[in-house]
């Protein structure tokens, strides 16, 4: 893992946390964790789990800790709610 990559991962985690902050800290922690769980590749997750938390915001830190502990957070925003196998609704979340 290069320094450039881990710096990016920290920035991504902080960005997600910052943009969820408006829904309240507790929900933002869950939303950030859920977002990372749904969209990050395993090597990205393991890299951020293994990283120290010094450059992460409190919300991002709590979210990473939650995921690292194996918790599966419930969706807090529609952006991580996906169609079930026969569902037509929702859509891509990029």
């Amino acid at each position: 893992m290069s320094e450039g990559t881990i710096v990016k991962l920290r920035r991504m985690a902080n960005q997600i946390a910052l943009n969820y902050a408006a829904i309240g800290a507790d929900s933002a922690v869950l939303a950030t964790a859920d977002h990372i769980k749904k969209f990050w590749d395993p090597r990205m997750k393991s890299s951020i789990f293994a990283d120290n938390r010094t450059d992460l915001s409190p919300i991002a830190t709590a979210a990473i800790d939650l995921l690292a502990a194996g918790v599966t957070p419930a969706p807090q925003s529609g952006g991580t709610e996906f169609n079930k196998v026969n569902e037509v609704g929702h859509s891509d979340a990029g």
Partner: peptide, 24 residues
């Protein structure tokens, strides 16, 4: 590990409209 060029153009449309309306 599959992605598409929408990553660099309209992926936020997917996230935003899915969140608010339920479809992208």
């Amino acid at each position: 590990n599959v992605d598409t060029c929408a990553r660099v153009c309209h992926s936020p449309t997917g996230f935003g409209l899915s969140t608010t309306f339920g479809t992208s």
